[in-house]
Amino acid sequence: MATNASANVIRTGGGARFVIYTLLALFCIYYLLPLYVMVVNSLKPLSEIQAGGMMSLPHEWTLAPWRSAWSTAQIGVAATGLKPYFLNSILMVVPAVAISTVLGALNGYVLTKWRFTGDTVVFGLLLFGCFIPFQMVLIPMARMLGLMGLAGTVPGLIFVHLVYGIGFSTLYFRNYYQQFPTELVRAAMIDGAGFFTIFRRIMLPSSGPIAVVCIIWQFTNIWNDFLFGASFSDYDSQPMTVALNNLVQSSTGVKEYNVHFAGAIMAALPTLIVYIVAGRYFVRGLMAGSVKG
């Protein structure tokens, strides 16, 4: 994206540029507003929010809502705060991302460098699996997890995310490896290198960028998932999103908005950090997941 194609041709005058910058700035405010609301209100006492001060900076700064959201807030039946659920999410995300990325890399490698009749059909089947409404698999999956003895456990959730993550990770690696020169692979075959040797020595060393894209995509999706978490977890295996929703929707007692906002930021922080640190790869993953099939 080195050149602004149309802007090289289309010129805008000083007045127009002022309008453009103003509009862009207004939209910055629009997109940042909810984040501002969350941050500011997580740092003030509840009384200030109740008095109609949602938009103002705290008069009295406090970290109490954060402490409460993390370790003492009532989530469902237990006053444990979000901490155990944050850990659940991490325990769920790490293996699910790792395994689905490795499988995706191997699948992409086979589908591009060891092609066989019907490989496009196989890829099409994997690809369509990415886009189905998961409502269609909830009922049988609940039974299957029961049969496997994984119902209501973190390993059960790992399994579910793994199963429905393979499609996208295969998509990324397949599209990436398609650009990779097949001649190199063929030359290595002639030299007698086997399937896994070629993968390890030739494909993997150049897979860095797409691996980052894939890991970020899977991490964001699995961390942010709510439907599977709500369907297949028990009180002690809920992921962060489900626990946050329970915290916010709980109908008993005073609504502690400041604690809710602190909890929401905690749930957002991991993916937000990834986005800020590696935004380029995040966008690339989004685009590859949508623009190209």
Binding site: P34, T271, L272, Y275
Partner: peptide, 8 residues
């Protein structure tokens, strides 16, 4: 916002 959970 695209990086956030819909719950957030």
């Amino acid at each position: 916002p695209m990086a956030l959970s819909f719950i957030v």
